[in-house]
Amino acid sequence: MNCEYELYKPSWCPGCGNYMIRDALKKALEDLDIEPSKVVLVSGIGQAAKMPHYIGLNGFNGLHGRALPPAIGIKMSNKDLTVIVESGDGDTYGEGGNHFIHTIRRNVDIAHFVHNNQIYGLTKGQASPTTALGQKTTLQFDGVKLNPINPLALSLTMGAGFVARGFSGDVKHLSNLMKEAILYKGYAHIDILQPCVVWNKVNTFKWYKDRVYKLNEDYDYTDFEAAYKKALEFGDRIPIGILYKVEKETYDQKFSFIEKGKPLVKAELNPINAQNLLEEFY
């Protein structure tokens, strides 16, 4: 099986970064030689979240802001599946902010790719949680009055073991990041910078292109303080690459029957097995 198919023409605008992110994902899965039937792509709502419709993988296109909880349920029920979450900045950092925080706490073995175009695309140009302070939008006529979220600083603070930033304009680099994230045992967060060609006239392709730079090869991604500094660097220069990566015990490893046994979905069910539980009620 191949994860490429052309049945559905994406409803993304020409020039949208989502195309490049899809190319990077396809390449990553092909390079890793993972059967599409062993992958579940989970998403919420938004332009980015339509990804399960435009790629040949198992898909769970759920509710706005709610991509992470089903991904956790899926991974814990079938540890053999590769579970990838793709959603936008509004979905992940706004509507789904609480799930984002607590998913990091769990450290479930999933890869989370956030398409961050710093604007709401599908609902036509309102501010997202990552839109810059003061930026005028189709709703914030006087400019945004809320401070933006710093997604990477947040996930680092919450204890994520894999924190990275990618850029849709560099598919090869992004694809390699995705491979690392998928292979990583635990929750892996990639914030992917992506221009919105229609609604964000500030953070354009050129804007990102002029600012992003790749982290040096001698950058030590196990150094938390260095990672935190890099996470705060978002202005004239924006680093891309793996900011932080360390080993951490994953959520499923904390359940011995999952760690040692077969996936829960393959468990044989027999009501009689529970009969002994009646004893305490006599």
């Binding site: 349920g73 029920s77 979905v265």
Partner: peptide, 12 residues
């Protein structure tokens, strides 16, 4: 939402 993910994956 989480329970629905688990059920989709095939467990009760």
């Amino acid at each position: 939402n989480m329970a629905l993910g688990a059920s989709y994956a095939g467990v009760r």
